[in-house]
């Protein structure tokens, strides 16, 4: 019982990281209805990008973050136009295989460039921490949480108050009517996809100094991201944020209260996924999806 204050802190900070991880996935699926199985690789490349910049020029990952996000967005838009637009009308299985394949290629490119050993960026704030009585707050994760709040806030602002943001929401909800009001759907799709990659890259930059990065880290991220998206409701960005925090709390609680709980963390994600699919397939907030 005396774990609770620390548990809340740990869960909140983890939730912030999960939110970052997932929000890009929710955006790209909500708008394009394509599940991007290479999203984990966007995170991975963001992490390596931050690592390489830090290694070569000494620039802090947080400073490199905006540049990396812009590069990620442009790359995502180009990738969409070249590889994904052609299969928009194809069966879902084809789309999944395509993005999965892209992910594998990116993984192996990363292995070739950076080798397979684990890396991490060492920054002064990554090791800082604050003590409030018995509760300890790690500085690196707090910053990650802060970045998540800023980016999610910016995303919501963009969606609410800008032309393209409004158009993205419209596209998310009612594709036909969006076409009818003159929204250039293909361009919006590319933009949404590019933004989702940018958000993935941001996640990677944060992870580069919080933990360890390796070319294969993308897969675990994707699996967890998928569980969160289903939990929160496919296609709902608000749902994704809720799902992220819910899963973070569930995992942290299990870690603290179940003996050997940290060993069960991944199982929690799958158990949650299973329960949601059985009890409430549309997720907490999501709309029903036909297939």
């Amino acid at each position: 019982m005396h774990y609770i204050p620390q548990l809340i802190v740990d869960a909140l900070l983890l939730g912030g990281i999960y939110t970052l991880m997932v929000i890009g996935l929710a955006l790209s699926f909500g708008v394009t209805r394509v599940i991007n199985f290479a999203h984990g690789e966007a995170v991975m490349l963001g992490a390596y990008g931050a690592y390489t910049i830090a290694l070569v020029s000494g620039i802090d990952p947080l400073l490199a973050l905006p540049l990396l996000m812009v590069i990620g967005c442009l790359f995502g838009m180009a990738l969409f136009k070249v590889a994904i637009e052609p299969v928009l009308k194809a069966p879902h299985v084809n789309q999944i295989l395509l993005t999965f394949g892209i992910g594998l290629v990116l993984q192996n490119v990363a292995v070739m460039i950076w080798k397979a050993d684990e890396r991490s960026v060492v920054t002064p704030y990554a090791y800082s921490s604050f003590q409030f009585g018995e509760v300890f707050v790690p500085g690196g994760r707090l910053i990650g949480f802060g970045v998540a709040v800023v980016l999610v806030g910016a995303l919501f602002f963009w969606l609410r108050h800008t032309e393209f943001g409004r158009a993205t929401r419209a596209l998310d909800e009612q594709r036909d009517a969006a076409v009818l009001v003159g929204i250039n759907v293909k361009r919006m799709y590319a933009l949404a996809f590019g933004l989702s990659v940018a958000l993935g890259v941001a996640t990677g930059v944060i992870l580069s100094f919080i933990g360890a990065i390796s070319p294969f880290m993308g897969f675990h991220i994707l699996v967890k991201g998928f569980a969160i998206i289903v939990l929160g409701g496919l296609g709902s960005i608000v749902g994704a944020v809720l799902g992220a925090f819910l899963l973070a709390f569930a995992e942290t609680a299990v870690s603290y209260y179940v003996p050997n709980g940290t060993g069960w963390a991944e199982a929690v994600a799958f158990a949650v996924l299973f329960l949601v699919l059985v009890l409430r397939p549309r997720g907490i907030v999501g709309q029903a999806v036909a297939d």
Binding site: R166, A167, R169, A170, E173, Q174, A177, L180, I183
Partner: peptide, 26 residues
């Protein structure tokens, strides 16, 4: 050329004003 489709197809989670504003997106 503008179509008001069968079944209305309004944007359900957007407000009335947002729907109208979107009508003039182009």
């Amino acid at each position: 050329l503008s179509l008001s489709p069968e079944g209305r197809k309004v944007f359900p989670n957007l407000t009335v004003e947002e729907n109208l504003v979107l009508g003039s997106f182009n």
